[in-house]
Amino acid sequence: MSATVQQCTACSSVMFPFRLFCPYCGHWEFADHQVDDAVVEETTTLADGAVIATVVCGAGARLIARIVGGEVSQGDKVALSNEPDREPGVFAYIPFTPESRY
């Protein structure tokens, strides 16, 4: 289980959503980078009970996710997935389809 982010092949910076030029060094070639987990910064519970979170991955990128399969608290490390319904356990779902990344 992991989520795809974008990594600059020149300066190794990690971005999400995918950019066209690297905002840190101006380079325009990238590789996909898989991130297994991230730390929960904030959550909010919507009227229908869904929990939306901001998570920050080790390389620094902040992602907006839906928490699936259980509860998390601020500061927790949570597994990431680009699939909304994977295996049991708590994870953060981050919508992403490779064909539309640019």
Partner: peptide, 26 residues
């Protein structure tokens, strides 16, 4: 925009309330 269409609407999320809720918490 593209980012909303691809990365927020499928959460699902309709509109920016959740984003500004988390900003307000910060």
């Amino acid at each position: 925009n593209r980012a909303t269409e691809q990365h927020l609407s499928p959460l699902p999320l309709s509109g920016p309330n959740a984003l500004f809720a988390m900003l307000t918490s910060r």
